[in-house]
């Protein structure tokens, strides 16, 4: 038996990362099934019903196998190295966000002192991966999609960051665990309901801007299939396309989990007596609900135009975020 003590931290980290990747894959499988079901029911259909018997529950597994055995095509004119690298970069950007998500008080990758800020920083990586994919594909649809995506994600990062600052200011810390701990004891202590209506506005702005951050409808211009085929991943197939897909669902989970953490009380129950139900269930439940709302919006609202997209960001979200920031700052100072 080798002495494991010095490597214990490393081993725990590796186990945690493997666990997170497994969790992300399972979540993505479940979310693709849910997305089809939600889309179906909103459009007055049933969605997948055949595969596996009960409500087509095996459909995602069948889809995954189909993706894995598909031919992996690399266009002749593509920049091969960047083309191969891009989907993994996008996936890493999404996976890195999981490091600071507090599933429970003790179940967190690392309770960084800069938790909230770290998430904003690592998710900005996704932009580079997307630009890389669009450029390396050597295809005009891919390039247009990548350009749109970069413009959109960089613009919407600002309202996202500004509205995340509101709970950070109220808590006086950026650490995820401390922010959640400050919301203990019932839903009236959640940051979304404190300092009404400012924090509620911040939550709404965050939620909408985060939809743009993850390129979901009504902000899915980068992959608008009616004009751009599939945007930056037009040329991708097989496992690399699956990586983009996984990253998209991972991003949906991360942005929803951040909202659940900083606005909706993280792992705490809405009523103190419900705290007997373990924290991770509440955390994942709240996050899953927000993911459901994202799907609901996707299948309800039409896509925005590019000019409307920029209008919403710079002329509506940004001024409201700034006013919000000032007013909450005043509130924090007055309250001492």
């Amino acid at each position: 038996m080798i002495a494991l003590e010095p490597y214990l931290d490393l081993i725990i980290s590796v186990v945690y990362v493997v666990g997170i990747v497994l969790f992300l894959s399972l979540f993505a499988l479940f979310a693709t099934w849910l997305e089809r079901k939600v889309a179906g029911h909103i459009q007055d259909r049933l969605g997948p019903m055949e595969t596996g018997g009960w409500h087509g529950w095996l459909q995602p597994i069948a889809d995954a196998i189909k993706l894995l055995i598909k031919e992996d095509i690399i266009p002749a004119a593509a920049d091969k190295k960047l083309f191969k690298l891009a989907p993994y970069l996008v996936f890493i950007g999404s996976l890195a966000g999981f490091a600071v998500l507090p599933f429970a008080a003790n179940l967190i990758g690392s309770d960084l002192n800069i938790g909230v800020y770290y998430v904003i920083a690592v998710t900005s990586l996704v932009v580079i991966g997307i630009l890389m994919a669009g450029w390396a594909s050597n295809n005009k649809w891919s390039m247009y999609g990548a350009m749109r995506s970069a413009a959109q994600m960089i613009s919407y990062e600002i309202p996202v960051a500004l509205s995340l600052l509101i709970p950070v200011m109220m808590a006086g810390t950026m650490s995820m665990v401390e922010i959640v701990d400050n919301q203990a004891g019932g839903f009236w202590n959640w940051y979304v309901f404190r300092t009404m209506p400012f924090s509620l506005i911040a939550f709404v702005i965050y939620f909408w801007a985060s939809l743009a951050e993850v390129n979901r409808a009504p902000f899915d211009l980068p992959e608008a299939e009616s004009e751009l085929v599939a945007g930056y991943f037009t040329e991708y197939s097989g496992i690399r396309w699956a990586m983009f897909f996984l990253a998209e669902y991972g991003d949906m989970f991360v942005v929803s989990a951040i909202a659940a953490t900083v606005f909706l009380g993280g792992w705490y129950a809405p009523f103190p007596f419900l705290d007997i139900i373990p924290g991770p269930i509440w955390f994942i439940g709240k996050t899953a609900f927000l993911v459901f709302v994202q799907m609901w919006l996707r299948w309800t609202l039409p896509r925005l135009r590019v000019d409307q997209l920029m209008y919403v960001c710079w002329k509506i979200f940004l001024p409201f975020s700034f006013a919000n920031l000032l007013l909450v700052g005043l509130w924090v100072v007055l309250k001492g």
Binding site: L112, N113, Y117, Y118, I120, A121, S124, L125, I128, I154
Partner: peptide, 22 residues
Amino acid sequence: APFMAAIQIIVYAGAIMVLFLF
């Protein structure tokens, strides 16, 4: 200095490098 590291990533890798790429 984790804060400096995050700034390094968000400002340089996230924003300025995207501008370079553009």
